[in-house]
Design a binder for these strands. Structure first.
Lengths: 321, 321
DNA sequence: ATAATCAAGTGAACCGTTTCACTTCGCTGA
DNA sequence: TCAGCGAAGTGAAACGGTTCACTTGATTAT
């Protein structure tokens, strides 16, 4: 590995001069600067990032903490984040859940974090966040001067979906809930029930856990009961898929027998027969917004702008009479 | 930030002793060790990763270089890599194409690399690879003592697909090729044509570029020609999807009018109507194999084991008469 | 002629660890 | 009694950069 000392020696200058010349700062004569740059080029010199970070106590890196790579779930968000990073001189460190998450966060290997991993506790986030280490959270509602929660606009999409069902004359509705500890689930449920209440409807809630199988099992239960609901809203698409699978197995059709709406707009929903109505959000924009705000905070200390990511109903076959 | 000096001071020992105690090496009395660990705990001390890396000239990090996050393409490979990393004391740095790729590679911020990004040139890989910096490439055939190409077993899957078509009595076949500079495309095509030749078949080749639209356009051309082939093999699924879309628009059905087979087993193939025959590989296993070999090389200098990732035909509706 | 100014360049400390080479000291065995 | 030893602990250099405070020597103003 060639170091700046090698470069300095070859250019016949001091290390200080070499450093200034390479970084284009300090007052260095044109001829000298050129000599240093040439030497660096000839020796194929590249500064050691660790030495630099150690000195600067900054890493020019944004950390993104997700629970796993799979599931198509983070893909678009990451693409969005990446697209912004490309325009900046920051780097991107994507870290799936593991011991290293703790390590990386604690060892300050990144300048700021975007958190989308419920395994990271609220306490941890609260403890870590500081002026020197702002955190954007995408998966929870958490307030703090140096914490920005950036969440989906669940109410908007859910209200739209409710209206879509209601205006088609459907009155007997059911709600299939996801994991209890999920903020999104809570908000989707609260909104749906509030809308129903406004229209004097009673909506039974079935407790699932966001998995396909939980949707499937809940559908079994519902189908075996006395009378079927006219419409079911599932707190996410996986459960809607499970629900539809059970319906199919019992010879029931959506939307004729039960209209079904999900949430997230995962790719399969488009390809299923029938195609599945769902609520979409621009996950790409979610990612770009998150990283823009984070970098803006790091560079200019601009206070966080609370914001919701818009959602939109995608009315497809499974709920359109 | 608390440093090891703070810990040493609080424990009333030298920095050296603190370091040894924290790392569990050197000869340090039991009582002293305990005192140091307590001090570290109380001060919430975490060693600075950069200082450590600087000293060690090792980062305990594997870099994965992909072209982008989207497209479901890397997902499973990354999951596989991640699952292995979890069992080791290495960390994972996933880097989508950008200036930073160069930076990270050149600045030796990782101990070894897994490359799956055709934008990184062969020359770059050849120049970088060394005993101290082994590289696994997943997207090209590249030989070198410190380079391990880990590729799909294209011939196996393609031969299976050819047999599947041939045994159903199909004789008039066509091949829809992907990007010219792709190793996978070349190998798939070579295998298919060789198989055809063995059975005295002539197979016309249509040049696409792996995109859905190129498959669509080629289908248009073929459909407007005098006589249709009985079967078409597309070098990847995207093109197969485009091909099927064009067929549908012209009122043609797969497999009755033309049997279609793709390659990659992307999720949609399962959900389409008709479901699309394709060739699958365990991408998860691809990832685990890659990182296992890399770490094994780093730790034990065990020479690379050339290997192919097995592929398997998934015969679905689009090609099953 | 001389002081002031300025551009160009340099020495050395520092960032936070690790680790080599060394010291200290109590104990054992002859 | 004392050489020798091993356990416990320490000082300081090193990793590879950056940057503060400083020197040098030429130019300018008076």
């Amino acid at each position: 590995m060639t170091t700046i000392r090698d470069v300095a020696k070859r250019a016949g200058v001091s290390v200080t001069t070499a450093s200034y010349a390479l970084n284009g700062i300090g007052s260095i004569g044109e001829a000298t600067r050129k000599r240093v740059l040439e030497a660096a080029e000839e020796l194929n010199y590249h500064p050691n990032a660790f030495a630099r970070h150690l000195k600067h106590r900054k890493t020019q890196t944004i950390g993104v903490f997700i629970s796993r790579f799979g599931g198509s779930f983070y893909e678009e968000i990451l693409e969005g984040i990446h697209s912004v990073i490309l325009e900046t001189d920051y780097e991107l460190l994507v870290c799936p859940e593991s011991r290293s998450t703790r390590r990386i966060l604690l060892h300050r290997q990144v300048d700021g974090a975007i958190v989308f991993d419920s395994k990271i506790s609220n306490e941890a986030v609260l403890k870590l966040a500081s002026r020197r280490f702002p955190i954007v959270v995408l998966d929870r509602f958490l307030q703090g001067e140096f914490i920005l929660p950036l969440l989906l606009d669940n109410p908007q999409g859910v209200r739209e979906a409710f209206g879509h069902l209601y205006h088609q004359g459907l009155r007997k509705m059911a709600f299939v809930a996801g994991a209890m500890d999920s903020f999104d689930n809570a908000e989707r449920m609260a909104t749906f029930l509030a809308e129903a209440e406004q229209h004097a409807l009673h909506v039974p809630v079935y407790q699932g856990n966001f998995t396909e199988i939980s949707g499937y099992e809940i559908a079994q239960t519902i189908i075996q009961s006395d009378e079927l609901p006219e419409a079911v809203f599932c707190a996410n698409d996986q459960m809607a898929l499970g629900f539809l699978r059970a319906m199919k197995e019992h010879g029931l059709h959506a939307p004729a027998d039960i209209a079904v709406v999900g949430f997230d707009d995962i790719p399969q929903t488009r390809y299923m027969q029938p195609s599945v109505s769902t609520i979409s959000a621009s996950r790409f924009e979610w990612g770009t917004t998150a990283v823009r705000q984070l970098i803006d905070f790091l560079e200019n200390e601009s206070p966080f702008q609370p914001r919701r990511i818009p959602t939109r109903l995608q009315a497809r076959q499974s709920s359109t009479l």
